[in-house]
């Protein structure tokens, strides 16, 4: 048990290091897209450690407690995440719904802490984040439901990945093309990439939920954000891109997915919040349901 917990914490740490490095590399790539030189690849590490070295302000116990709960919830979620087929802390317990809902604990902690700061912009940011969540989560879950149904009924993330590696089965992004598109769009929403960046919106609501954070609290939220991105991108890799047999393949897939999303995001402007909702409930939901019906009832799977 102790070993498992250590492996789990290791996965969380790995996720943090990986995503922080990827974040830095991607800042560099986006800079190149914009004809800039861009920061050092380890810039994100510097940012986070700098935040930890600063003296922050606190708006009362709920402000601190929420941050702890946020990071704790996300670390707990990451502990269940399989990296490759072999690197997994709690085998058999990597249920898809754990990721969706345990992630929500972290989000709730952050939302609570942000509202506890007493800043209206933070509450507006939380409102937008939750509304965006309502938008992207439903189409995504319908697609995942299709996947669970197609794998013969397993919601274990690593087993879904293993299912796609069996000869004769395509990756689900190919097997379910409509669903794949929906998943990519939803992933953009999950990661808060443009055009779904409504809840951060620095120029509009002063970075939303994070408006009152500085110093170590902001640093912890950054760590939380990095691990969240790791969880979400990993989920996408395992559910749609056939998982990873070795660490190298995993890193490659991770890099490709995250970079592709960043490149898409770097050429878009921001939606308004109601546009986000209307958008997701128009095409992605329609496509997700169509995909579910033709895959489950008609059995048309590539």
């Amino acid at each position: 048990m102790v070993v498992n917990i250590l492996v789990g914490l290791g996965v969380a740490l790995f996720g943090f290091v990986l995503q922080t490095a990827m974040g830095g590399i991607n800042r560099k790539i986006v800079a190149r897209v914009q004809k800039r030189i861009g920061p050092k690849w380890y810039q994100e590490f510097i940012d986070i450690f700098k935040l930890f070295s600063k003296r922050s302000v606190s708006h009362g116990w709920i402000f601190d407690f929420g941050v702890i709960m946020a990071l704790g919830g996300i670390i707990a979620t990451a502990m269940f995440m399989p990296v490759t087929a072999n690197i997994i802390a709690f085998e058999g317990y990597d249920n898809f719904f754990i990721f969706v809902y345990l992630l929500a604990v972290g989000m709730l902690g952050m939302a609570m802490s942000a509202s506890g700061s007493g800043n209206p912009l933070a509450s507006i940011g939380v409102m937008r984040a939750l509304t965006t969540m309502l938008a992207y989560e439903v189409p995504f879950m319908i697609v995942v439901m299709t996947i669970i149904k197609l794998t013969g009924g397993t919601s274990s993330v690593s087993e879904i990945a293993a299912f796609q590696q069996i000869a004769g089965n395509n990756w689900f992004i190919i097997a379910l093309p409509l669903g794949g598109i929906v998943a990519i769009i939803s992933l953009m929403g999950m990661l808060g990439k443009k055009p779904f960046e409504t809840y951060i919106a620095p120029a509009e609501i002063a970075s939303g939920p994070m408006v009152e954070y500085g110093g170590k609290q902001l640093g912890m939220l950054f760590v939380m954000h990095e691990i969240t991105v790791f969880i979400e991108v990993s989920l996408f890799i395992h559910l749609f891109l056939g998982g990873a047999a070795t660490l190298g393949v995993y890193l490659l897939k991770y890099f490709l997915v995250y970079t592709a999303l960043n490149l898409i995001s770097s050429v878009y402007a921001r939606f308004k919040i109601d546009q986000v909702v209307v958008f997701f409930y128009k095409w992605p939901l329609f496509m997700a349901v169509t995909q579910a019906i033709i895959a489950i009832y008609l059995g048309w799977v590539i």
């Binding site: 941050v67 702890i68 919830g73 670390i75 707990a76 502990m79 709690f90 912890m220």
Partner: peptide, 14 residues
């Protein structure tokens, strides 16, 4: 339990 572990780690960082 893991939620507890996570919160504990976060608390240590804090």
């Amino acid at each position: 339990g893991m939620f507890g572990v996570g919160v504990f780690v976060a608390f240590l960082i804090f």
